[in-house]
Nucleic acid binder design. Structure first.
Lengths: 225, 225
DNA sequence: TTAATTAATAATGTCGACAATTTTAGAGGG
DNA sequence: CCCTCTAAAATTGTCGACATTATTAATTAA
């Protein structure tokens, strides 16, 4: 997951990653207040390190800060999910368009191999696909766009909020096989260098995904999380 | 520009805004290193405040940080501009689509009035339009999307980097009148609640704008900034 | 002279303490 | 009983000092 250049080196790095993971996994519950002194003792570092981490968490859209008051973990809501997926649809649609333009032939071959290995795993009934596999697929296309700012915006920006929704709402549904077909079609469009189609298919794929998770969210808890 | 809720209150707020403005205006030159101690003396605050400001500048995509090394102002390049406008095209296209869906009738009326007042100013030869007017137009549509995360991503995220490009490359060109027509057509699409058309027109509008600024950038300095 | 090693310097990272602000608890009056 | 005002407690904001890491300069050997 981490390239050598972004390996954690300072204690602030590690603390940030620990807290972020705890927020995504729900160990620190959504909507709760983040006390600097409390976190300081819990993670065994000074408040300066905690404040550094809080700043990065805010940049990741996982917490909200108010001056002189403090930071709170974001709350998960149907509206927030919808808003997030609208952004994903927009940005990843563009990423797919750019991937069709800028991915090397080698990258496309490798992406096809990834899809094949997923297919094998789906056949044998492994739950692998939806969890890491889907993220991996999207990640490769994002990288394939070759747009550094877009890559940063998606992987450092909103990616972990997406993960937070998926983890805390428990994503493992009947979409595994249908998502496979959608992925296949997207790769085909990229192979044909059809930017327009690649973007359209990616946007639909994400919109289907949004509907799927929104359905689950409303059925499990009709009034929101 | 600032709503009451986001008024600067702490010295870190004010320092952040000061430094950000100096970066956008080019007082702190693009690509230069940001020394914490130097900034500390220059702005008359402690290093802790400077570090807080630097964190927020990073969230605004105006600087880049490396652990144990420091922060540098981003460099302006044709590639960076292209990447930024691809993101704008994507996100503001979505914003226009959502604005066509979610703006109130009153907001649309007000937007039309804004356009009319711009038209008057363009007629009298004021240079007002391209500078603040264009930003105002885009800002209203972003707000009209009613997508809080999208609003945050655009106005707190990449907006100031856009400004930095425009300010430092000196935006005042022959696009004033043509941009006016493009704005008019976008508003019309929103009035008709035509989401599809609103998105398409906004994307084209931003792409034209990108071509315009890219042309200026390459003619002034063929090898980049 | 050049390259490599090492010491000195300067920068960022981290810490604990103090200041300013907010929140809470309590006393008093209505 | 409730509201207001006040004081105490707790929290965030800011500061200067120290620790750790990078950079630079000097020294030595080839």
């Amino acid at each position: 997951m981490f390239s050598a250049a972004s390996m954690p080196v300072t204690t602030a790095d590690k603390t940030f990653l620990s807290i972020r993971n705890d927020i995504v996994e729900g160990v620190i519950v959504a909507g709760s207040k983040l006390s600097e002194t409390e976190l300081s003792t819990k993670y065994g570092v000074s408040r300066a390190v905690i404040r550094e981490a809080i700043n990065r968490l805010e940049a990741n859209h996982l917490i909200e800060r108010k001056a002189n008051i403090g930071a709170k973990v974001v709350t998960l809501s149907p509206e927030g999910l919808s808003e997030l997926y609208q952004i994903r649809e927009s940005l990843e649609g563009m990423a797919a368009r750019l991937a069709a333009r800028n991915m090397t032939d080698e990258e496309i071959v490798s992406l096809n191999e990834l899809l094949t290995s997923h297919f094998d795993k789906v056949k044998t009934g492994e739950r692998y696909y939806q969890e890491a596999g889907d993220l991996d697929f999207h990640y490769r296309i994002i990288i394939g766009s070759k747009n550094k700012q877009l890559i940063s915006l998606l992987s450092n920006g909103i990616y972990h909020l997406v993960r937070m929704y998926r983890v805390q709402l428990g994503m493992a549904g009947p979409r595994v096989t249908t998502a496979y077909d959608e992925h296949k079609n997207i790769i085909q469009a990229i192979s044909h260098r059809d930017e327009e189609l690649a973007e359209i298919l990616m946007r639909r794929h994400i919109d289907y995904s949004r509907q799927n998770i929104a359905r689950k969210l409303s059925s499990v808890n009709p009034t929101g999380v």
